[in-house]
Design a protein around this nucleic acid. Structure first.
Lengths: 125, 125
DNA sequence: AATGATTTTAGGAATCAATCCTAAAAGGGG
DNA sequence: CCCCTTTTAGGATTGATTCCTAAAATCATT
């Protein structure tokens, strides 16, 4: 475990925020200014591969990273992109797997809304 | 409705395939060789905005487009990326909305598996 | 702690999907 | 056909991410 990887992991593990690679890069550079962007991406990839963190692909926006290891749905603000974890509903995959007769390997469920902060800031007519 | 947009729409409407912009571009150019890539992207965006088609953001892969207008889950092959439509389960959003007390505007549910074709082609060990 | 093999890093170039820019072409309605 | 608005082709640009390479760090062994 290199210092770089530990630092990147710590940033993700320290808070429930679902940060982008760029945000993680900025936070990490505050402590290790020589850190390269490529190192952040590579280590995020390795941490994901090893199951230590989870990658969240966002619609029309950079990916975000989640310290929560187990699969669960996410509540995503359509306006600002903020992501919240939701509790995993029981039997979601099982229901579909049974209905289709297929073996599922995972799922990705995003629920979209407009968060209170964004609802405040006028939007249409 | 320009000829370009009609052509792009027809390609999507004609088959249940969930194609990428590049695939649509290639198919369209077979009929209209002067068609520009930017025109494809712009028209896909407009068709999505007008609710005529749906955009599917894929993990680590270009977006795909779905002729199905109503929200429904997708079954995605982890290996080749092929996408199939699944029937919409009743009350999926309602359940979450009620549990969280939030107003949801939409959802995106992807179920991952390895399709039969890819299961055949050796993978590990 | 020195040695040598292996892995990782910094830094920047490269890639790739997608967007933006601009002058020319196409609509479109009177 | 004429004027006005929208769209297009084609190419440049962007932005997230990946790739490349020589230098630095790590690691196991002594």
């Amino acid at each position: 475990m290199t210092r770089q990887r530990q630092l990147i992991y710590n940033i993700i593990a320290a808070a429930p925020e679902h940060r982008t690679a760029e945000e993680i890069y900025d936070l990490a550079r505050a402590e290790m200014p020589s850190l390269a962007r490529g190192t952040v991406y590579r280590n995020l990839g390795l941490l994901v591969r090893d199951g230590e963190i989870r990658k969240l692909e966002m619609a029309d926006a950079p990916a975000r990273y989640d310290r929560e290891r187990s699969p669960h749905p996410h509540l995503v603000c359509q306006v600002c992109g903020r992501v919240e974890d939701l509790p995993a509903p029981d039997g979601l995959m099982e229901g579909f797997a049974a209905a289709r007769g297929v073996a599922l390997t995972g799922y990705d469920l995003k629920l979209y809304h407009v968060c209170p902060a964004c609802r405040g800031k006028r939007h249409g007519a």
